[in-house]
């Protein structure tokens, strides 16, 4: 834990990570973004953490030597784990029950930005109101740092469709935020 906190936050670039470094550095680098991606495909924050755990452990044990962008591999692993989780009906029912009993889905997506807490909340609310197919493209592009080609491959779309959804998502987000500013 301590080691993680000591890593400089500005080192969040994939090319800065040595191939054979300890997994803690990888987790510090990719963990927050993977968690955000996972939350697009799961019903609660705790489900997302389960999914990230499964995907990261699988990646670290079996896939980190594979060619390609680590983040793209990790996102694929996260998505598969999320789909697997969704198929486990009994567990899903339990999670849904837990979600109904608490405000788990309202867990913050982002840390407090310099712009302020109010703006963060407005952005998160606007994100949550986006259609899921637009939101997942936006999240994968902005915070997953995937290319449209990688997003297209991940979601079985054409790159043009991925790019279009991204533009729609940004426009919808701008509209939502403008409306929130007017009301508030």
């Amino acid at each position: 834990m301590t080691l993680i906190r000591q890593i400089h936050p500005n080192s969040e670039r994939m090319e800065d990570v040595p191939k054979n470094d300890f997994w803690q550095k990888w987790f510090q680098l990719y963990g927050p973004r993977l968690l955000l991606c996972a939350r697009q495909w799961t019903r609660s924050a705790s489900d997302a953490e389960d999914v990230v755990q499964e995907a990261f452990v699988r990646f670290w044990r079996h896939q980190r030597g594979l060619p390609g962008e680590p983040m793209a591999l990790l996102v694929t692993s996260v998505r598969r784990a999320a789909l697997d989780l969704a198929r486990r009906d009994g567990r899903r029912a339990l999670r849904e029950e837990r979600a109904r009993n608490g405000p788990e889905d309202q867990v913050a997506l982002f840390e407090n930005p310099f712009a302020g807490e109010e703006r963060r909340v407005a952005i998160e609310d606007a994100l949550r109101r986006l259609p899921s197919e637009q939101r997942e493209v936006l999240v994968l592009k902005i915070w997953g740092e995937l290319t449209f080609e990688q997003i297209a491959a991940e979601l079985s779309l054409s790159p043009n469709t991925a790019a279009a959804r991204y533009r729609y998502a940004l426009a919808a987000l701008r509209h939502e935020l403008a409306a929130a500013d007017c009301h508030g």
């Binding site: 834990m1 993680i4 987790f27 510090q28 963990g31 927050p32 973004r33 968690l35 955000l36 953490e49 990230v52 755990q53 867990v107 913050a108 997506l109 982002f110 840390e111 930005p113 310099f114 712009a115 963060r120 952005i123 936006l138 902005i142 915070w143 940004l170 987000l173 701008r174 935020l177």
Partner: peptide, 18 residues
Amino acid sequence: LEAELKRLRPVAPSPELF
């Protein structure tokens, strides 16, 4: 807006997950 979104940092995983 895109630049503003990129400046937002996703929350870190919990210590329990670590």
